[in-house]
Amino acid sequence: MKKLSLDYKQLPLIATMSLFIVMFAIGSMRYTGFLSTQVFLNLFVDNAFLIILAVGMTFVIISGGIDLSVGSVIALTSMVAASLTMNAGLSPWIVIPISLSVGTIIGLGQGYLIHYYNLQPFIVTLAGMFLARGLSYLISVESIAISSPFFDYMAGTRIPLGGGNFISISVVIALIVVLFAVYVSLFTKFGRNVYALGGSEQSALLMGLPVARTKILIYTFSGFCASLAGLVFTFYMLSGYALHANGMELDTIAAVVIGGTLLTGGAGYVAGSVVGVLITGIIQTMIVFEGTLSAWWTKIAIGVLLFFFIVLQRVIVLRTKPK
């Protein structure tokens, strides 16, 4: 009995893993050329920014919140990076820190408002979403193409993995972020406080945990991740554009939920979110391989998965309640 309820909590993660394996297997059987290392690696190459976003979002959702601003922050970061590089002609050593601070500051502000004025994360980050998107329009309505040796290098470098397979620098950055986040979530006080906060904010307060600091730091970290993802996205697109990453906050939330994190907070794993991103990636890949299926099937498929996981979560929450 005791063992059973423990398994319940891990059910979403197990479901996620199995889903990924099953999908990869189906793809491999159905389509020639699917079962290759590079197809697998491309999931990372094409979704590096989404992985970074998902990492930040995982912390937010585990703590019981939500961050809708991340997609817009990507656009804003890309615009800041592009205009500083192309219009101001600054060196990447200055551009990168400034770009990274963009999302970090927005996240910090959001966290502050959410905690100290007890506003709903949903509405605050919604405002942040408008703000970031609007600011990027203010920089320029047009897309700014980037051509600088640094950005070209970051975009074009292929890191060979043998056998003709390769990954990009962005993948390395994403993996570093993932490893860092896994470490933080499992082995630091901050990481554990995030889980405690998601379990019960009231309990966390009564247990004397630094709720204010933790909460603000969570949104700051998510903002930082969004900016970093923005840079990686800029490497990928080699342009800054106010319409970049439109609606990507939804893709991110979907990936995190499919990755087994409870939307009500308190449970989830960074690694699960990575698998969640890979699943959304594999859906796209399969649709490409299928050829006859159109892109919108991705949205429908993700919606269906989302529904499946949300209902699964609901069942788990009901089962594990002591009553």
């Binding site: 909590k9 006080k189 554990r192 406080n193 889980y195 405690a196 998601g198 379990g199 019960s200 009231q202 309990s203 966390a204 009564l206 247990m207 004397g208 945990l209 308190g266 449970a267």
Partner: peptide, 21 residues
């Protein structure tokens, strides 16, 4: 407290130590 003010989503160990790991 009566409604035990711990975080049931964490392990037993963590509930004993959290904040003083």
């Amino acid at each position: 407290y009566q409604e035990v003010n711990l975080c049931t989503n964490l392990s037993v160990t963590e509930n004993i130590f959290i904040g003083r790991e």
